[in-house]
Design a binder for these strands. Sequence first.
DNA 1: TTAATGTCTTTTATCGTGAAAAAACATTTT
DNA 2: AAAATGTTTTTTCACGATAAAAGACATTAA
Lengths: 300, 300
Amino acid sequence: MSKSNNVYKDAYNRCLRLLDETRSLPSEPELGALLGVSRTTVRSILARMEETGLIAWNKRAKTVLRDPHPDDFFPEEETDTLAEIIERSFMRRLLAGGAEAGMQINELELAREIGVGTTSVREFLIRFSRFGLIEKRRNSHWVLKGFTRAFALELTEIREMFELRSAAAFAALPQDSPVWADLDRLEDEHRQLARDIATRFNEFSELDERFHRLIHRASHNRFIVDFYDVIAMIFHYHYQWNKAQERQRNEVAVGEHLAYIEALRSRDLGKVDAACRKHLKSARQTLLTSIPESRQPARA
Amino acid sequence: MSKSNNVYKDAYNRCLRLLDETRSLPSEPELGALLGVSRTTVRSILARMEETGLIAWNKRAKTVLRDPHPDDFFPEEETDTLAEIIERSFMRRLLAGGAEAGMQINELELAREIGVGTTSVREFLIRFSRFGLIEKRRNSHWVLKGFTRAFALELTEIREMFELRSAAAFAALPQDSPVWADLDRLEDEHRQLARDIATRFNEFSELDERFHRLIHRASHNRFIVDFYDVIAMIFHYHYQWNKAQERQRNEVAVGEHLAYIEALRSRDLGKVDAACRKHLKSARQTLLTSIPESRQPARA
DNA sequence: TTAATGTCTTTTATCGTGAAAAAACATTTT
DNA sequence: AAAATGTTTTTTCACGATAAAAGACATTAA
């Protein structure tokens, strides 16, 4: 099968949504920049749009002929990266239980189960290993360390260390730094979400990530910034898995974020530290309660 | 070519060194455990040793017939992992200069230059990416971030954060913890090295790594422990590259380690903190002086 | 009956191959 | 001439295939 054309399909779908808004499409390089793909892919998209009668395409002229129909879109599941597919599949097994710590991971079996080549699985495991949930035995198999209480504690320990430092760095940024405007915008979004929390509570997860990433970036340290990938990944699946009291949890978190933002704006390091600690403590608590006490590592 | 038999060759060489010491070899499983390889590999080794007349092998009896000759050994370069070969090759290019930050990395070109397949290079790059020296552009090439001053500062910032915490955790360990015995042994080795520093100064690098890893392990945090891989890698190549005043630098470092060890043993957190800071500060200085000021990132 | 050896099976590591996508180059249009 | 389009070349991504190495099972020796 060699390589799936998910980049094309995903970009095609996103391009379809653009069609609603305009009567004609921009130049090829412009479209490429907009969709985040190369001109080669843009041209494939345009070619298909012409074929299906969505646009008339003649050199520079790309006139929209009709609005896209639901079945003009490629199915969602065909737009995912192989890496995403493997990760989802792997995390499902991991969190669904039955994946005891100490268990060994079989590349070939995983590949067959997901229906992909071994190379992709191998590359996934290597990439995934930095999350600290799996480990490779020298010239042998991978071992599952398990999503345990210990893991959550180790993760949050680093998170707290890094975020306290980043928050302090943030508060120390000069008044004319563009981050303050970013912070204003995020505060607005928080206030809006707080108002409509009853219906929009599930949008918090995404806002949460953007907020914390903004703070971590103030550290100007690639290791701190990159570590947020680990946190984001874990919380992403945690949110998907543990829906208990989601609304209430998120409502509390939004409140904590707003206090945190105010503390940052005060530039009072004591206040920043306190607000940051308080929020991280409850975030840790949420994560911990989602991990069953029983899950203990199988062997040393 | 599919797969090189470097595991076999390396284990064979190590097994040859065992021959000097005994008149007969232990059982296959025992040998496997000793050499860190499977019985399959052990049997290949024994088979060859029999062929070349090094041993007489009949079931349990594995009698040594003669001492190994220098050309019984496989050449050193055939015992390296592909990953090691690629890493060395890559780091040489990186440190040899001419590798400007912002430059793009070509998998195929690298693979051809080193004489390996693209898959191995890809896997290496993925693994290597956690060191923060390269970065992947979404569905496109890798970009070199460069071994810059900024990199060294970011690295050491985290190192200091982690090691101060680990050292504090270490000092707080109960008296009956086995780490104190490990520390004693390391102290001895330091004292011996200090005595013969004039001739053995190049042995410091390895001792340094063992010492710091012992301390980091006290954190009981996988992210802290794993981060030492980044430090070890950087310092490993740094030591190889920058030989200026090596003897003197190492002599100073050994002294600092001894003070650090004493502080740990005093279990006085103030002293530990001071000794740790002092040593890390000079380690950072050493690293920084090896990076030419001129090397600036090419683009944003 | 335990622990070794002997044999067979499974898994990992690496390569070459081919399609998708990017990037580079050439040509045309404004 | 600058920026688009048209065309060609490179590079990345993913696969199946194959040898090395690990692991499992069967048999034999102490």
